[in-house]
Amino acid sequence: MADTMIEVAGVKKAFGTTKALCGVDLAADRAKVLGLLGPNGAGKTTLVRILATLLLPDEGSARIAGLDVVRDADAVRPIIGLAGQYAAVDETLTGRENLELVGRLYHLGRPEVRRRADEVLERFSLTGAADRQVKTYSGGMRRRLDLGASLVANPPVLILDEPTTGLDPRSRVEMWGFIETLVADGTTILLTTQYLDEADRLAHRIVVIDYGKVIAEGTSDQLKDQLGGDVVELRVASPGDLDKALAAIAELGDGKPQVDAEYGRLTLPAKGGPATLMAAARRLDESDITLEDLSLRRPSLDDVFMALTGHSAGADGSDGDEPQPADDAGGGRRGTT
């Protein structure tokens, strides 16, 4: 059944002079993951807050299961679960108390609250820590509890705002596993992320936003096809050679080459595939450039983002442990998260 569970049409929201959303449209089908991909400050959290009935849009409409998030907010709340960008759990309560509190506030009956809390603890491997105060939890455990709290009432629609930001790689992969089983059970998920690999892995459809506008949309493969073919990627041995390499092969590409100075890396859209690779190899050889690596590959979402926006996703890199490779000198995105 492919009916639409989340529907956003022409939503605008400004904070003073900051236009956080400038007319966003999107739709998510039942039991699918819609990935909302964008760098810091793109407007992801703003859209999440509107969908979760926390913020009123200035213009446009948003519906969940056909219910308007403004007019029918009271009817929307029982059917959504929200896990925000920061784990919204009470540090001084135990894991179980946190879940039971949320269950009671969803107005589940007492026995059901207890049963659901046990199930969620079990599901997120928190049974052993259930009766410990959350302040003793690791970051990964907190995130799991936070996601668990949004699942206590088994809501058909889940809204997850950057569920893996700040997690170590292992907890991240674990979180992906949980999200995948939820979808398999029929939950519709809107997931925001700055990470291309995350959207690639989890999302059935991806909506790319930047500066409050949708700049691309489709499946991961469709987005990659927008680049129209493969990508030649090379890494030079000494950073000084990067400019020389760029000069040597720039005209072979079918688009703007991207330079990543930090890693001595250069990527070039190459519709010609192997022929372009061979030509590049010859020219680089003639120019006496020593390479660490030269390859032809399918474009990644990072290449797509680069091609669409002229800058890499997640360029802000504010919280340190970003699992995705850094980008070129593009640098300063807008401030807050």
């Binding site: 979760a52 009935t53 926390l54 925000g84 919204a88 949320v102 506030l105 709290a149």
Partner: peptide, 13 residues
């Protein structure tokens, strides 16, 4: 600041 008010406000309470 902790975000827990966001969670409460998203609940049908």
């Amino acid at each position: 600041r902790g975000g827990i008010v966001d969670r409460f406000r998203s609940l049908p309470m």
